[in-house]
Design a protein around this nucleic acid. Structure first.
Lengths: 203, 203
DNA sequence: GCATTTAGTTTCGAGTCGAAACAATAAGCA
DNA sequence: TGCTTATTGTTTCGACTCGAAACTAAATGC
């Protein structure tokens, strides 16, 4: 019984994913500008991650791909002028990635897809919020079972410090702006005293 | 405000999809047996569709791909002995597809993934049911906005007939078994008097 | 009977993806 | 200091996805 609900749940998520990725391209779009779903997800990640997490290795871990695959997708995005690649001055093996304005535009054009926005508009706001909260719980459960932790919002981190003059990262000891504290960090550590009140700390 | 909820909702579904497709392969698996996500979705569709909907064209429409792509994936599945391909005796252009025992085994091994099942086990049954109901509403809304109708469960069809000696399809006029009536049909027509009570009629 | 439509296959090019080899750099340790 | 090991990212290879378009075969329309 629980089994059939689980199966239904899985089918729903898969089906929604299929419908979400359906090419709903405007007729005036140049096919050469077309981005694969994975490209869009990379752009979305780069838009949401902090300065410790904007590297190919972090993208690789977040999206669960191999570094070879990610390297190729990143060079495609770079070739098309959607992202910048900057060598790290301190560790010359490391590359920092950043969205260029064109990349930001491409992201806005694709996320969320127009069909999804329209579908949401048909649902009561309360339903949407409830659905988001429920999915949040499922995602958290998935992260626990897969052991794929290590990513989370900066300000929910065990090492996040609130100081008189602002915020600070307890790992790097660097100061953090309010914007920084809203971003995804690859070094995130979940607080041990996990109260049920902390919502939306999973990503 | 509704916009940020929508974005969050979209990100959650995408993220869940990523985690769902993460290769959680047992170490004793032969890489040659490995199936792409799209292969698993084809198997799941063939397991769930009725005898009017077991053709390459129906798979193509349901998954939103091109017929060339589907043709190749189907020949791969056929090559590996997971499906049968039988020419239609009445229309010799048409091919009927069916799961072989090995295909059924492969489907059971992949759907739902073990990680997903484990995650579900952590959630209260009530939450899961509520989540499924909410996602159902979202899926229905997506189908309306994308106009991608034409697929639905047989027994929820406008043409479905309950007769003294059983069920019957009002389109083909053929008799239907109870099992038939539970399957996905490509010719499905939504009843015009759409009461809010009919749940789970979308696929 | 001939044109049109439909079902499915084949072919092509761009790209994903995992695996493995590789180069460059950093870190650990004697 | 020098040597070994670990880490970051790129490159190469082969199998595969995917869309587009050409193509075959068969059914339908007039």
């Amino acid at each position: 019984m629980a089994d059939s609900t689980d199966r239904r749940l899985y089918d729903l998520i898969e089906r929604l994913g299929t419908l979400l990725h359906d090419r709903a391209r405007a007729p005036d779009d140049d096919p050469a500008d077309d981005l694969q779903p994975v490209h869009v997800r990379i752009l979305a990640y780069l838009d949401a991650c902090n300065r410790y997490s904007d590297t190919p290795a972090a993208v690789t871990a977040y999206l669960g791909l191999t570094k070879g695959t990610v390297s190729q997708s990143l060079s495609l995005l770079h070739r098309r002028g959607l992202i910048d690649k900057t060598p790290d001055p301190d560790d010359r093996r490391v590359v920092h990635l950043a969205l260029r304005p064109a990349g930001r535009d491409a992201l806005a054009a694709h996320v969320p897809p127009a069909t999804f926005r329209d579908a949401c508009a048909q649902l009561p706001a309360g339903d949407r919020a409830a659905l988001a909260a429920q999915l949040d719980g499922l995602l958290r459960a998935m992260q626990q079972t897969t052991g794929r932790s290590g990513f989370g919002l900066c300000h929910t981190c065990r090492l996040f410090r609130r100081e008189p003059d602002g915020f600070r990262c307890g790992l790097t000891l660097e100061p953090l702006s309010p914007a920084d504290s809203e971003k995804i960090c690859r070094e995130h550590e979940t607080p041990t005293t996990s109260g049920a009140g902390a919502a939306h700390d999973d990503v």
